[in-house]
Each structure stands twice: as C-alpha cells, then as structure tokens.
Nucleic acid binder design. Structure first.
Lengths: 331, 331
DNA sequence: CTGTTAGCGCTTTCAT
DNA sequence: ATGAAAGCGCTAACAG
C-alpha cells in the first residue's frame, strides 16, 4: 500500500506538505504543490480513510439501517441518500439480519461508531429493544409510534392514512372491508396504528367494527399475504374491499383475488399503503397511501444534523403527513 | 468517548489485558477477566472499530455498489448479504449517484479502501470507465459482458435467457415480438445482449428480424417504459408480444396495454427479465427470466474470497445460468 | 498469565 | 511556506 510518507519521500517534502496539498488546508508553494501532485499521480496514491477517520474522529458517512432491502425501504433509501448527499456525507445501507432475535443485535453498537450518524428503521423493534440501545453515535429512529422519548424520531401519520384509504372505499360503497395485515391490540406497531385508522373510518361512517375483519399475516411477504387472503376466501367470510397494511400485501391480494375469479374493483376494492412505484402501473392501478419519502427523508436528516450540531438538544418527535392516491383498484 | 485505557485504568490492568479479554485472544485469569468485564459494563465501553481497522488493516466489511437501490438490485443485495454474512463479514450497500457523469466518480477510490472487498454492478459503466479503475481493494464486477480481463467478473447468461423467453412466445404463436428496452448495435451492454437472444430465437424459428421491433427506452424507469410503449401503439406498429429487457419494463408494459384496452395474454403476450417477487403476483402473473440471485451471489462472493486469499490469482470470468418461469402473461 | 513497546496512516499543534 | 513531534485508539510482537 502506498502511504503518504511514500509520496513525501518521492516529492522530497514532509508528510505535512502532502497532507496540506491534498486537503487545501494551508497555502503551499506552486512548485512544491506540483511535485507533490506528480508524486501522487506516479505512485497512484489514495488517502487511507480509516486513518483519516481515526484522526479526525468523524467518517463523513451516515448509515440507514433497515429490516430488509426491499420495497418500501429501497424507495425510502433512495430519498434518504439524496438528502444525506446534499449535506456532504455518504449514505450506506445496512440490513438487520432477519434471523436475529433482537434485530439490533445484528448491528453491533461498535459498528455504529463507524458512522457520524445512524438512521434506523424501528419497525420490528419493540420499546424494550430500543430502551436497551446506548450509543454515543446519534441515532434517529424512523417508524413506529412508541419509542423512548430520548430518541429523535420520525414517523408517518399511519392512522390518518389508513383512515383516509378506508373512508374512501366506504364512500365508494364498500361495507365489509378486510384490514389485511393489520393487527389488533394496542402495541404501537405500524400494523396496529393502521388498524386504528381503519376503525376510525368505520366509526366516522357509523359502521360497526367487526374484529373478524382484522386479519394479521405472518411475515409481510407476498406469499404469506396471498395465502392468508386465499384462506379468508375459502373460509367464506364475505367482504367487498381490502385495506392492506402495505402495498406488498395489496399486490399479493390482487393476485389472490385474480386466482379466485374475483374482479377488482367490481367485486372487491383494494387499497394499499406505501405507494410503491409499481403500484401505479399494475393493472388496474393500485390505490395507495403515499408515505412521502422526500418529507420523511428531509425530516430525518434534519434531525440528525441538528443532533450532530447540538448533542444535548432535547429530542424531537415528528409525524409526517401522508396522502391518498386513488387509482383503478377502487374506482 | 470511553477508550480502552479508561477501562484498563478502572480495572487496574493494562490495555493489552482488556484487549485480550474482549477478543478472547490469549487466556486471561478469571478474576482479572471479571474485573475487566465489570469495568466495560460500568463505563459503557465499546471498541472503536476505526482504530481496530487501522491497526488490523482490514475492516470485516464488504460493499455492494449498485446504480440504484431498487428492484433487481434490492433482490440481488439480499442474496449477497446472506453470502457475505456466511463468510463472517458485513455487507453494506452503496449507491452510485445517478447524476455523476462517470458513475464511478461518485464512489471514490479512497472509499473503496474502507472495505475488504467490493462487489460492483457494472451496468451503466462502459469498458473505458472500468479500465480507469485502479484499486488495491479487490473488486468483483457483476453485470455486463465486456469488462477488462483483469477483473473477476460474474455475469448472467443474458442471451440465453432472452432467447428462451422469446422462443417460448414464438412457440405459443407470437410472430411480432417487440424487444422493449433492448438496444441495437454491438455495445456489450445488458440491453444489447438481451436483444441478441431475441434475434437468435427468431433465427432459430426461421422468422425474419425486423429492426423496427427493437425499441430502446430512456432511463429504465416505469414511466419511461410506459410512455414508450404507448407511443409504439399510437404509431400503429402491429405487435402480438412484448419481450421486455427488465421486469420493470414488463410491468409498465402491462399497465400501458391495460390503458390501451389490450388484453394480456389474449391480444399481447408479455415476458420480462429479472423475475422480481412482485411479478409472480401481478395478475395474470408475469412470465419472466429468473436471474438466479443465489447463484450470482454465491459465485461473486466465492470470487472475492479467492481474490482475498490470493491477490495474484488470474482473474476468473463466470456466466451463471438463468431459467424461464412461465406464468399467465404468456399462456 | 500480564505488561511494555512500537506503530498502523493520518492530521493537529507547535516550531522555524 | 514548510517541517517535527505527538497522538487518535487499538493490537502484534516481544518480554517477563
């Protein structure tokens, strides 16, 4: 490996001069400068960022830690990357290993130190897991409602979005609306927040709430969602609409309904949540709740920058608005 | 920040003993060990990985560098993460900034040093760009056919996959098959390799090759694909099938055909390439070429490990097989 | 079993 | 405008 002192020797200067040339930190005479650059070129030198980071105490890198690379997260990551880069840092994506009991365990606290800051999607982590996190690296949580106060936190208006989607289908005439992938109980998980919105829409419309229509699914995969809906159909529970907790679930539902000979939207209306890019194109177009990735990303990075500037600032909790996008699946 | 010497002082031992306890490197007496662990706990110490990495000359991290976080890449990344983790390292994902003239510029050579190895998707990089890469960090290229010999390289059997998909639609009766998102010319880009397969299927069947049916699209987005196909339809070029260069294009085509009142597969058969998860669920099910992420990931990580073990081994070039998956869109 | 020394490659600080 | 020395936090190598 070529080091800075190799370059210094080649150019006949000290390592400090090389460093100054490379970082434009202090004025360097033009001829010296030229010799240094020539040496850098001829030796093919690159600074060692590990050494620089150790010395500087910062890395210029922010990590976004997510449960999986798919779907919602990849679209969010894209928006976050743009925001982080606008702030002059790099973004890297890390995945928590699904198999880990406690998802956090798969990204050790030590690893967090490799970053100036971390944005972590807390979906799948409960309050206890989060309480256990002690890190000198600033962390901004993205996701569910119930996080310890000490964390900066950005969440979606999950209830409002679910309510709007459900109310929209009620307004179109749906009366028996499955809450597919939603969960009962009051754990403040995303799936339960979205069920609350589904319930609220029913109350607003003076419709009864039938708990049989809240149908949780296992692992949020397409396959699991498909199988679950097929089972509901086989069991004979009558329904005329599906509010799916995520677009992945909604898209799988479109498939399952098609397999069962049910037409969308004529027999069953379908609405999702996440507004994946593909949802706009899949016939007949999937009605969905746009989570506003740009806003989430902007707020998350803003909170991180604020925290980096002032480590002792009080934690901030932000809920970002969402927006229903109506397409063919509910027409 | 709590350092190792803080822990050493607290426990009344040397830093080496702390290091040995933390890394299980040399046997440490039980009482000493206990005192060290107690000090670690009470001070909330975490090793500084930057310092460790500098000292060790390795980082235990592999980067997968991709043009975007979406679709094909997210599904590939998942498989790669599993392989890398099986080898005891972490995977991080980095995105090349789309705006950069030369995509490589957005991931500086210096950054590559932060990793033990790099897997880089070369889609979008031409041979000249690749030729310019000089890195002491091992790089395995994923993607197109035409890469400099010195790189380890894994590519898909793009031609074979495209040929199989096209032949399948010909066998079902299609005669005018758009090659949507494919490109003419002999640049060894993915889009041209797939066009070659489309042509080969025509030759094999004794069908004429009409270059008007090769319809490139701009940026590989859903929207671009949709607009392009709508334009083809408006222009009146008759076709009874679409072979799309990617599933994103194929899914957008399903939408555009639906908008135009054309039925799939009755009026137009559609086949994609990538076998995204969603493609299985979108009615009527998208026929697609499964790129075999597991195989690609396994080979890529194998090449990387081989290179790490022997930096001077001759470069290896691997083409992995693909497999047509037939679904409703071509029945 | 435990400690001391040296140094990974860089940049801050102080000197010239 | 340039250089020398010190040290970021850790661990390999050598001592005891």
């Amino acid at each position: 490996m070529v080091t800075m002192s190799d370059v210094a020797r080649e150019a006949g200067v000290s390592t400090m001069t090389v460093s100054n040339v490379l970082n434009d930190r202090r004025p360097v005479g033009a001829p010296t400068r030229a010799r240094v650059l020539a040496a850098v070129e001829s030796l093919g030198y690159e600074v060692n960022l590990t050494a620089r980071n150790l010395r500087a105490g910062r890395t210029g890198t922010v990590a976004l830690i997510v449960p999986s690379f798919y779907d919602y997260y990849s679209e969010l990551a894209d928006a976050v990357a743009r925001e982080v880069e606008a702030g002059g840092r790099h973004l890297v994506l890390e995945r928590t290993t699904a198999s880990a009991e406690l998802e956090m365990a798969s990204v050790s606290r030590a690893r967090l130190q490799l970053y100036d800051g971390v944005l972590m999607s807390s979906v799948g982590l409960d309050r206890e897991d989060l309480d256990r996190i002690r890190s000198s690296t600033p962390i901004v949580l993205l996701g569910e409602r119930d996080v310890p106060d000490r964390f900066d936190h950005v969440r979606l208006a999950n209830e409002a979005g679910a309510q709007e989607a459900t109310a929209h289908m009620i307004a179109r005439g749906s009366r028996r609306i499955l809450a597919l992938g939603c969960t009962s109980g009051d754990a403040h998980a995303m799936t339960s927040d979205r069920r609350v919105g589904w319930e609220q829409a029913h109350r607003d419309a003076g419709l009864p709430i039938d708990e049989r229509y809240v149908v949780p699914i296992g692992d949020y995969s397409f396959e699991d969602a498909r199988r679950t809906l097929l089972k509901v159909i086989a069991a004979g529970l009558p329904f005329d609409a599906v509010f799916a907790a995520t677009d992945v679930i909604a898209l799988a539902a479109l498939g399952a309904l098609h397999e069962s000979g049910l037409r969308v939207p004529d027999d069953v209306r379908v609405s999702g949540f996440d507004d994946l890019q593909v949802s706009r194109y899949v016939p007949p177009g999937l009605t969905s709740v746009d989570p506003g990735h740009e806003t989430v990303a902007r707020e998350a990075v803003r909170l991180l920058h604020r925290r980096l500037a002032d480590p002792d600032a009080p934690a901030e909790h932000v809920a970002t608005p969402v927006r229903l996008v109506v397409r063919g699946s509910t027409r």
